[in-house]
Structure formats: structure tokens, C-alpha cells
Design a protein around this nucleic acid. Structure first.
Length: 278
DNA sequence: AAGAACGTCGAC
DNA sequence: GTCGACGTTCTT
């Protein structure tokens, strides 16, 4: 829940302020403003990485993970009856609609259609007010804003440059819900879960298309790890930075942790490559 | 399977 | 050219 997130954020903040008080450790920043600082307490006591991401998805996306339910209940709860919620019903409709779309588009979900479908699924929370605003991060900032480490959403996402959707040319959706690949723009599986499309069969077919692109994927910039701006300096990635060439484990993008197969392609109408980060 | 090391790409 | 970071391969 949000309490978990705020707790994590508060712990970090407290940790930082404590460290400033207790020791004259000069905070090290790289040229991107990433702080390389030990997070001893938060690392020892804080959530595990999986917990971290679970809380992240639950709060940032309004999506409640099953694992969280498990954590909260010592006894095995009765199997989670899938409530026929409005969103579930919408997802069912959406599935049919999407199928029709995909049939006509050779398996590729046109971005504009994906946008329309997501809207129709009642997923306004995926929209960013003003086209490119503080939608997700703003709602989050009250409880988990401290985790932002001073990063604004626009900061993380970049400008609404060459994308034709949204007010003022801004991109109206949370960029973290999409994956950019050389093969096109893909709908991240987090978005698919939200839309009830996670098991959509076209994914497997699209996997090859994604994998055919050898270009590096980029961090989504929206997930909790992406928004973190502090290197823990304690994980193996931090310790072995010189040889490992890996980002801090706590800053590793959730989407990049997943295999690049769980996504549904959304082609831009122009066919041009759209980049979140300019 | 997980972690470490290396090669390489991309931004600056 | 340097540095951060992703992808792949190797090691444990």
C-alpha cells in the first residue's frame, strides 16, 4: 500500500538526513546527479527488491499484486475470487476489441488504437494530465514523493518532442507503460495486466519481433527503481562497478529486469521511432 | 539459477 | 574520449 511506499521513502530520507547529521560524509554525485551513497539501514531493514517493485506497482499503477496479499496474510486465504469488477468487465470487452484490431493489423496494435482502448477501459489513471504532466508521479508524491529524490516526471521522461499525441504534442500516457524497441513501441506487460490483456496470445508472436531488434532497451524512467537517484554503494553492482558495468541493483528498471518478450507492440502511425529520452 | 565479467552501445 | 549502463557470456 501507500504506507509501504511512504515508509520506504521516509526511511531513505531519514537515513540521508541522519547520515548528514551523524557523519560528515560528502555525498557523491555523478554528472547525472545520481547520488552514490551507502544506504546501510535501508538496505538491511528495508524491503527486498521484489517487495520494492511490488509496492511500486501497487502504488504507482494502482495495481495490487497477489504477492502483496500473500504477505499480509499468514494463513492461506481463500483463493482470491476474481471480482467481476468494472475494469474486469471492461477488459473482457477490450480483449474482444483488441482481437479484432489485431486481426486486421497483422498482430500489431496500432498506438492510436491502443490509446483509445486503454481510455475506454476506464484507465484514466494511466493518463498524464495536460498530456505530459505529473499524473502518476503527482499522485504518488504525497506518500512516496520522497523516493523521487528530487526528480520530476518530466525530468525523467524528457520532453514531448516528436510525438503527435496529447495536448501540445505531449504523450498522454505514462511512458512506463510502453517499451521502446527498434521494432516499434510496445505496450508493457504492466499495462497489459492493468488492461486484463496480460495473457493475450499475440505476445508470444511479438516476442520474436522484439528480440529481432538488437538495440538496447532503455529504462522506463517511471518505475520506482528508475526514479531512485541514489546508488546504494553496497550491492554487487555498485561494488563491482568498474568491472561489472551494471547499474545499482536498486536502480535497475523493472521493465529491463523482465525478458523483452512480455510486451505488445504498438506501432506509431508514422512508423517513425519514438524515443522517450531525448 | 544467480552472480560476475566482459563487450558494446549510446549520451555527453 | 569518457563514462554509464544494457546484453551476452562465463563462472560458481
Amino acid at each position: 500500500m501507500s504506507s509501504g511506499l511512504s515508509e520506504g521513502g521516509r526511511t531513505e530520507d531519514q537515513e540521508r538526513s541522519n547520515s548528514k547529521q551523524d557523519s560528515p560524509v560528502i555525498e557523491r554525485r555523478n554528472r547525472c546527479g545520481i547520488i552514490s551513497e551507502p544506504l546501510s539501514k535501508s538496505l538491511k531493514k528495508s524491503r527486498t527488491l521484489s517487495q520494492y517493485t511490488a509496492v511500486s506497482s501497487a502504488t504507482s499503477y494502482g495495481h495490487k499484486d497477489n504477492s502483496e496479499t500473500k504477505r499480509h496474510s499468514a494463513k492461506p486465504q481463500p483463493p482470491p475470487q476474481p471480482q467481476p469488477t468494472v475494469s474486469a468487465l471492461m477488459a473482457a470487452k477490450l480483449d474482444r476489441t483488441l482481437e479484432q484490431v489485431l486481426e486486421g493489423q497483422n498482430g500489431l496494435l496500432h498506438f492510436a488504437q491502443a490509446a483509445a482502448l486503454l481510455k475506454r477501459a476506464g484507465m484514466e489513471h494511466m493518463l498524464l494530465p495536460g498530456g505530459m504532466g505529473m499524473g502518476i508521479g503527482g499522485g504518488d508524491s504525497g506518500s512516496g514523493g520522497s523516493d523521487l529524490e528530487g526528480t520530476s516526471v518530466t525530468d525523467a521522461v524528457g520532453g514531448p518532442v516528436d510525438f503527435p499525441y496529447g495536448i501540445g504534442g505531449g504523450f498522454p500516457f505514462n511512458p512506463g507503460l510502453f517499451i521502446m524497441t527498434p521494432a516499434g513501441v510496445f505496450l508493457a506487460d504492466s499495462a497489459l495486466h492493468m488492461a486484463g490483456l496480460a495473457e493475450y496470445p499475440a505476445q508470444s508472436e511479438l516476442a520474436s519481433a522484439i528480440n529481432s531488434g538488437k538495440k538496447k532497451r532503455k529504462r522506463c524512467g517511471m518505475c520506482q527503481p528508475c526514479r531512485r537517484r541514489i546508488n546504494c554503494d553496497q550491492c554487487s553492482s555498485c561494488r563491482n562497478r568498474k568491472t561489472g558495468h551494471q547499474i545499482c541493483k536498486f536502480r535497475k528498471c523493472d521493465e529491463l529486469k523482465k525478458k523483452p518478450s512480455a510486451a505488445l507492440e504498438v506501432m506509431l502511425p508514422t512508423g517513425a521511432a519514438f524515443r522517450w529520452f531525448q
